[in-house]
Nucleic acid binder design. Sequence first.
DNA 1: ACATTTGTAACATATTTTATTACAGTATGA
DNA 2: TCATACTGTAATAAAATATGTTACAAATGT
Lengths: 135, 135
Amino acid sequence: MISGKFAITIHILTLLTKYPNDYLSSEHIAGSINLNPVLVRKEIANLKAHHIVESKEGKNGGTKLCVDPSKITLKEIFEMTFENINLGYAKNQPNPACPVGKKINENLSSLYADMNQKVSLQLEGISLEDFSNQF
Amino acid sequence: MISGKFAITIHILTLLTKYPNDYLSSEHIAGSINLNPVLVRKEIANLKAHHIVESKEGKNGGTKLCVDPSKITLKEIFEMTFENINLGYAKNQPNPACPVGKKINENLSSLYADMNQKVSLQLEGISLEDFSNQF
DNA sequence: ACATTTGTAACATATTTTATTACAGTATGA
DNA sequence: TCATACTGTAATAAAATATGTTACAAATGT
């Protein structure tokens, strides 16, 4: 199972990019994603921690982008919302007495590290502005 | 959460590659992965369906590779055990009345398709033999 | 004051992954 | 032929993770 964090965050940021002058409420954003507003606020909390957006509390409050969407890439959003790309590990500790069990996780990790490098390179080439312009 | 299917399958295949002349029992393999033998047999069932291994029932039975490990790549194993690489979707149906909600999944899918292509290219360059030789 | 909104905690539900138990069927070899 | 050691598979349970809901204090504009 893969959590929707990245997708939700991209959705939020695309909306904020489309309406750069408005403070959008979590309710409004949640209506576009069709998601509970609390979950939207949780992802916004993460974005705030990374100084990508700013929020205003109280009436007419909401959230607003505080970076230039042409200056931030999907790679940064990926890193804020996703550990890393991988194809999983067997949960248990493999048997260290077996030459395969002993090294399997190390070898998988190295394979996955290569994967991440390739994916990062791809995502680095796409700015938030690029992504938003597709809509 | 990402299931361990790929990792378990790679582990099984690496063992079978190391002992190409033996029928290894699910119990034996499970001992290296430190996993329940039933789960090993389930992954083996999948490998059998793809004609990568063959099994022998009964006493002294077990499983054995039936392809040349230099001829099969990690890409094929990936495709047998993993839908595709992606960074997730918001679970609910996004709002079709919103221009972003309407196209978000399409645009994410296209992003993920590019990711898969890059990952596939990487995995295609690694044979099971290559992977096993790291141990 | 009042209405609206964020921020956050606490709790509930759903889904997915992993583990366990059970047992019928099959081959081996003493 | 009979005990033994396997596979194959179903059914069920447990654990982990993801998502949803309720509640309410605090902030702020009108």
